[in-house]
Nucleic acid binder design. Structure first.
Lengths: 151, 151
DNA sequence: GTTGTTGCAAACGTTTTGCAACGAC
DNA sequence: GTCGTTGCAAAACGTTTGCAACAAC
């Protein structure tokens, strides 16, 4: 089932309406892939519909989040990022130097949830994991910079 | 080395000053244990020094964070929480029903950092991990509530 | 006395909301 | 036509900042 038809069906079912703005925003989220923030989605949307308002972006993102179509994250920053929910759970690896974000999964995460939940008697439903570090490109750039100045 | 003497020494070393406000805020963080937000720390501090200002709380928390005395986290909420940095890295398990926070560690986290860093060629320096779920008490309460209404 | 720090008020960036006009059904 | 949705402006929220008075050194 595509996100667009899921959206239409879920809205219909709860007496809500499928508007052009909602269709556009979902489409942009699909095209972009991932990790957009509200401001950037707003900017993209305005290229296609200049009258669209930032509060509509926020209201729509909240709706899509509540419908389970979109995941809301905080990648170590002071505002949210949004991405279309994919079937597979995944986590984020953030380069603190250039800000790039890579997704990853690992069977170790399931093991961790299982082990910690059992030990502390919690039923664990979700995990937010952000690993922070330096990507290969930034490490190389930092190495070159050090060579030029000091050494 | 106690946090108070670490504070004094580090301030001295960088030409900064040890003020009553800074001593008080650090002391409250010590006494409370963990996971205070700025508002709550402000409230506690005002009981002892009613003239103390919220911006001083923020400035001091930022300073203590930069000095490495305090860790700043976002436990799935829209504002920061702060806790005295302990020697051991740890992560958080949050009950989504009652909001209680439990700390945990697990050797699986080191394994995860190692495995993901190697696979994607990142040098991983830190991990933020929040596991979300339901604690035993809230599960029991939810069970009782379900019994009374339906079923 | 010098200069880093504070309290205060005002600003900031992100997100939410009240409300009348609008548009999907 | 009904009623959910939008655009707009204004507010809310946590947090930061400019500045003159203050206090640690």
């Amino acid at each position: 089932m595509s996100p667009q038809s899921h959206l239409r069906d879920t809205l219909r079912g709860s007496g809500r309406r499928l508007t052009g703005q909602r269709r556009l925003l979902l489409e942009l989220l699909q095209q972009h892939g991932g990790h957009l923030d509200a401001r950037e989605l707003y900017r993209l949307a305005q290229e296609r519909d200049p009258r669209l308002n930032l509060s509509t972006v926020y209201r729509t993102l909240g709706l899509l989040r509540d419908l389970g179509l979109v995941d809301e994250q905080r990648l170590g920053e002071d505002h949210h990022h949004y991405e279309l929910r994919t079937s597979a759970a995944h986590y984020h690896l953030v380069c603190q130097s250039c800000g790039s974000v890579v997704e990853f999964t690992s069977p170790l995460v399931e093991q961790l949830k299982e082990a910690v939940g059992r030990e502390l008697d919690y039923t664990i439903t979700a995990a937010q994991i952000d690993l922070l570090g330096a990507c290969a490109a930034c490490r190389a750039a930092a190495g070159r910079a050090a060579e030029e100045t000091g050494d």
